[in-house]
Design a protein around this nucleic acid. Structure first.
Lengths: 249, 249
DNA sequence: AAGTGGTCTAGACCACCTT
DNA sequence: AGGTGGTCTAGACCACTTC
């Protein structure tokens, strides 16, 4: 492959690279606030919009976070969201020492419409319990979404979940004596809509992971379906589909 | 002027929604070119940059694609990239009737450095065959990346792959009599760097799926590791970790 | 040559968060 | 009240694709 020209990089990318270098060098520590757009613009003798673009690029790289009215600060590295057939959201992040905060969920009765019935592979009209929830790790919002639990499989689940902020895996294990398994996970990228943007404290249009999941009982019976949006600057997903052997030395 | 609007939605989102509606209605057919920014700006009496933002938003939603010097056209719906423990990229998309075109791969000898050895779970210094490749579906670029094949597990793989553009799953099955299994897949979102942007025909900064995969033999022995970038407007990933039963009716 | 979208400047107003 | 980033306008220049 010939690499003839690579000299004329856009100015905002040059600035982004300089800022990236100084973050990686450690000139700017984790959580530290960067100067505002106006001051940075003066530093490179460019317009405010040009450094703004550089900062937006760095945000999509996961290096900084921008909050309107507050400023731009250095982000910690992305979290690893590990998914295998057995998963506990809470246990996984606590194992890494991350401080997880779940919002108290909002619960409502629901029934499977045509779309939901297809996604969950259950009959139309079945009784469900809908749960709106959100999570934050290390003080920064991570996810926001909704889940649907089958009342037929998890009787009385609405009362169980009301106000509950712990690990649902443990809850179901102790109350029903069952284990849930991740059967299917779908990943998509979507720009943040106004409501999701507000919940996750990102600007409208910021790229989000849209994740749809289906959890089943051990025999493959569908039990829970969920749709969540995750900040793409805060997380990376790691899905295990088979065991791996480590070779040699 | 009269900004006495009671909708607190940004103007560019209102325009994006109107365009979205007319695409979903079918006023604009798949593949059809939209008017240029200047004409659209006249239509809504706004600046060119405002409609530009609306179009960029629609592109991130996967509804349109923008190509510099060419224009903005309506995209087909996102492809479903189904991943289970047994996968064939080629077979999967051909099953959906999509026309897959793989670029002839570029091959080079390589050795596992510390990073690669950790990722592949093999000893440092092991002999590998590096393969740069790209794919397009339905005439639009989809992925671009690099793969590393273990010479010890797939002897003579460099010669096999040189100029080969078919299904590698089938190739390995017929030549070595082995089946490869997807063991691990990592998903991350990254803004397009200049080189990836050029290969995938998107603007610099456009959000891409960064996908790392590890394929193994049936006993879990690592065989192939790969890193690919996928256009996030063109694809959605669907990972199956367990079988699912369909209930009722 | 004409048209397209990408970049950069310049200035304005605003909503939001902190003090 | 002061500072932050988000939005919108306006105009300019450019690289790229297509004719």
């Amino acid at each position: 492959m010939s690499r003839a020209r690579e000299s004329h990089l856009p100015r905002y990318l040059e600035i982004a690279e300089e800022l990236e270098a100084s973050i990686r060098r450690g000139d700017l520590g984790e959580g530290e606030l960067l100067p505002g757009e106006l001051e940075l613009a003066k530093r490179w003798s460019v317009n405010r919009h040009t450094v703004g673009r550089a900062l937006n690029h760095l945000q999509q790289m996961g290096l900084v976070a921008r909050v309107k009215g507050h400023g731009t600060h250095v982000r910690p590295p992305r979290l690893d969201y590990r998914i295998a057939d057995q998963v506990s959201f809470t246990a996984m992040f606590e194992a890494v020492g991350a401080r997880v905060r779940k919002q108290p969920p909002t619960i409502h009765a629901a029934r499977a419409d045509a779309t939901l019935a297809t996604l969950m592979r259950i009959p139309v009209g079945e009784e469900l319990v809908g749960v709106r929830n959100g999570s934050a790790v290390g003080g920064s919002p991570l996810s926001w979404g909704v889940g649907y639990f089958r009342e037929a499989v998890l009787p009385g689940v609405a009362d169980l979940l009301a106000g509950f902020r712990g690990s649902t895996s443990e809850l179901f294990r102790s109350v029903y004596g069952i284990e849930l398994f991740r059967a299917q996970t779908r990943f998509e990228v979507q720009p943040a809509e106004p409501e999701a943007a507000a919940q996750l404290r990102v600007a409208i249009g910021f790229p989000l992971f849209k994740v749809e999941k289906l959890d089943t009982l051990s025999d493959g019976t569908p039990a829970v379906w969920g749709l969540s949006y995750f900040r793409s600057d805060a997380v990376r997903f790691d899905v295990q589909t088979r065991p791996i052997i480590t070779v040699g030395a």
